[in-house]
Design a protein around this nucleic acid. Structure first.
Lengths: 343, 343
DNA sequence: ACGATTTTTCAAAGCGCTTTGGTTAGCCCA
DNA sequence: TGGGCTAACCAAAGCGCTTTGAAAAATCGT
């Protein structure tokens, strides 16, 4: 069923039917209702391609995800983030397109094509690194976008939504310090990623403010996998002066750390404390009455919702100041931390 | 830059330029090259909406994901699966659309709209349950589709790609039996899901074939979260005749189970054996020389690649017999299993 | 060299919608 | 009763592409 057929069926012109369905004022309420009823009954929905061609808008947001990192790892956060944005998109009549950039292919070309084909109204930039080339590139291209995260070394203004990673890890380190810990290890994510960079800043800044010095032996940076958590923690525990506390980049890494602590015959929260960042993934809930892990919490799904809402604003109102929002984390105390062991 | 402008630039008609770019034979190689060069140079790419309108094809595959389960959990497998299909899609000029069905909304209406708006050429059905209503519905609707998994109680023919879950859990149970285990617990996924149903069949069938009887006390069914693994295992270990082995539905569940075993002061692989299914998620690798977990392995990313290829066949060739493919798992021995403790 | 083919190019229609710039119908007031 | 409004509707153009059916150009055989 297309517009023409529906119009004929109703004995109205295409114009009127179109206007009725799109909520224009110059159509009587009586006709509008009649049209809407007929549309629903005949399962009419406007052809997207035709509408897109006529309006120049695609009502589609692009998400470009690259798996071209060393291990082609998919960010475990992805599913929940997408669920968050998707909720807002569909509530506002937008659809979401996913482009997977195959390894060794040019991500920039993907954006160029998306733009030339005018298949999306805007894109979301994922996992920005410190000097993120995509930001100036997209600005130049004129394709509206918003960044999930930030790029420390980017000067031009752009829309973003980020978690306050610096403050999160600063507070977490402060907390461990307050418990008496003096050797605190950081199991960071890949440090060319902006979020990891900022977390390290927070961590170091806390140490310095307490008169401790930064010991590079205690710091590592890697993709956030379970085995990274395990291997690295095992290594740390074997060293001559092992840490009494560990700051993990994600719950998955913390799982690995915990496994290593237990494998070494030690007790988490007593011999070794663990604090982790928690994205509140739906299948890795850490919200028992007393959570497993002491954590800096920030729901990535909620972040997706906020970010989507901001992006829709940008689309509807292209000349606005780019919106920016910084989400603070919650520091929740769980079973994985305790006072530093004496001696 | 649109086709008309490019044609004028080249002093050719739109027809010729279009044909040149789309690989039609009735255009000389010389012209074709000239056109392609100009297109690349001017960053021309055909407008998707216009092309879609003209051809009636969208070159887009829809993935509808529902988060309307009790906890709005996102399947952790999703990211890797999408990475797999996305690879094949983009290699073949297809795009992927994601529709998130908000909780309490009608998933069927989403499919109806997708179809009416002719915004996708086909859809992928995720997480089928035993009697999956979406299969007859989509057949009826005439929207091409493929199912990731199967529906045991569905009679009509349809395209699917599935893992042999029955054989996987049968083999895993056999393996534990061979090690001397007689009380084997099953921490299954939600059993209205087809995959979980089949796994239980495999488990029970192995028990029966060894003359053991099925003890419902040892069987549970739940969303596959870490805390499920922990809580349920703790409960089992506290019971009067605890299991000596556990069959877990996923690595995340196995993590929880391991935590419970350790919390009970027991040793995994000695006091309690654990076998899990492993989807080979990129951030939960279980492929050390001797893997952490003994597991039935099947890469969900590779499954995505296969499934995408099959779906594209269906699209290009609508009248073909629906393709169906059953993937066998690998049973790999890791550190989490050992002979049943004596006494 | 000239009609018959084959190769290469083209003009124009059509895909299904939105939107511009009307026209017609209905109403009010003098 | 008729001129001036407003309210309600409509015909047709146009979005940028593909594709049909025809024309022009090049090639061929005799």
């Amino acid at each position: 069923m297309n517009l023409k057929e529906l119009a004929e069926l109703l004995g109205l012109s295409q114009t009127t039917v179109s206007r009725a369905l799109n909520g224009f004022p110059e159509v009587s309420e009586k006709t509008r209702e009649r049209v809407q009823r007929a549309a629903k009954k005949n399962n009419y929905a406007p052809n997207t391609a035709a509408r897109g061609l006529a309006t120049g808008r695609a009502f589609m947001i692009g998400h470009v995800i690259s798996t071209s990192n060393q291990n082609e790892t998919v960010n475990p956060v992805f599913g929940d983030f997408v669920a968050g944005v998707g909720e807002i998109y569909s509530a506002n009549g937008y659809k979401m397109m996913l482009s997977v950039v195959p390894p060794h292919e040019d991500e920039y070309q993907v954006y160029r094509d998306l733009n030339a084909q005018s298949i999306v109204d805007a894109v979301v930039v994922h996992s920005p690194c410190i000097d993120e080339g995509r930001i100036p590139f997209l600005s130049e291209l004129g394709l509206p976008f918003i960044v999930h995260g930030r790029a420390s070394e980017c000067e031009i203004p752009y829309a973003w939504l980020d978690v306050n990673n610096r403050s999160a890890f600063l507070r977490a380190t402060d907390f461990l310090h307050d418990l008496g810990h003096r050797r605190i290890a950081l199991l960071n994510g890949l440090e060319h990623m902006d979020f990891a960079h900022r977390r390290r800043e927070g961590y170091e800044s806390s140490l310095v403010s307490h008169g401790l010095k930064v010991d590079n032996e205690l710091i590592s940076s890697h993709e956030m996998t379970e085995s990274y958590g395990f291997e690295r923690t095992s290594e740390l525990l074997r060293s001559e002066s092992p840490p009494t506390a560990i700051l993990a980049a994600s719950i998955v890494v913390a799982f690995g750390a915990r496994r290593a602590v237990q494998a070494a015959g030690k007790v988490v929260g007593k011999d070794v404390s663990i604090v982790t960042h928690d994205d509140c993934l739906s299948y890795l809930r850490n919200n028992d009455p007393v959570p497993i892990f002491t954590a800096t919490k920030s729901s990535v799904r909620e972040a997706g919702r906020r970010l989507a809402a901001m992006l829709l604003q940008v689309i509807e109102n292209p000349d606005m100041e780019p919106p920016q929002e910084l989400l603070e984390v919650e520091l929740t105390i769980g079973q994985s931390t305790g006072p530093a062991p004496v001696g």
